[in-house]
C-alpha cells in the first residue's frame, strides 16, 4: 500500500482512532452478548445501552479519522469504502431478512447485534480493495 507522509501528530491521531475503533468493537460485542444472557433485567438494559454507546463511539472514531485526515484523496477513498460497505451491509442484511421471513429454516437467524460487526468487517475489506485499486506504480 501507499506510504503517506504524515507528521508525528497525524500518526498519533490515526493510531488513536484505530485503537478506539478496535476497542469499541470488542466492547460492543462483549456488552451485546452479555445483554442477551441477562435478558429482561435492568442489567440487560444497561448493557444494551452500553453496546449502543460503544457502537456510536465506533462510528464517531471513524468519522473523526475521515474528517481530520489532511490528505484529501485518502479522505475520499476512506469515505468511498464506508459508503460501499454501508450499501453492501444494508443489501445483504435486508435480503437475508426476507429469506428468513419467507423461507423459514433455510437460513440461520441473523441477530441484529451482528450488523455493526458485519459493517466494520465489510468496511475493512472495501478499504483494502479500493486502496489497492489506486496503488501507485513504482517510478
Amino acid at each position: 500500500m501507499c506510504s503517506p507522509i504524515r507528521s508525528a501528530a497525524d500518526r498519533k491521531f490515526r493510531r488513536q482512532c484505530q485503537v478506539a475503533v478496535a476497542l469499541s468493537l470488542v466492547l460492543y460485542m462483549t456488552c451485546s452478548q452479555a445483554s442477551l444472557r441477562l435478558h429482561n433485567s435492568v442489567a440487560g438494559i444497561v448493557l444494551s445501552g452500553l453496546a449502543g454507546a460503544f457502537f456510536f463511539t465506533e462510528i464517531l472514531s471513524f468519522g473523526l479519522l475521515v474528517t481530520r485526515l489532511r490528505d484529501e484523496f485518502q479522505r475520499i477513498l476512506l469515505t468511498r469504502s464506508f459508503v460501499w460497505a454501508t450499501l453492501i451491509t444494508m443489501c445483504v442484511t435486508t435480503v437475508w431478512g426476507f429469506i428468513e421471513l419467507h423461507g423459514r429454516g433455510k437460513v440461520p437467524h441473523l441477530d441484529v447485534i451482528w450488523i455493526p460487526m458485519i459493517l466494520i468487517c465489510v468496511t475493512a475489506a472495501a478499504k483494502v480493495l479500493i486502496f489497492r485499486q489506486y496503488r501507485p506504480e513504482s517510478e
Partner: peptide
C-alpha cells in the same frame, strides 16, 4: 508528495488523471 503534505498515492492518482484535485 512531501512538499504537498499528501501521500504518494495522491500524487500518482493526480498524475495519471484518476483524480482531479480540489
Amino acid at each position: 508528495a512531501q512538499r504537498l503534505a499528501v501521500s504518494r498515492q495522491s500524487v500518482n492518482a493526480i498524475e495519471t488523471g484518476k483524480y482531479d484535485p480540489s
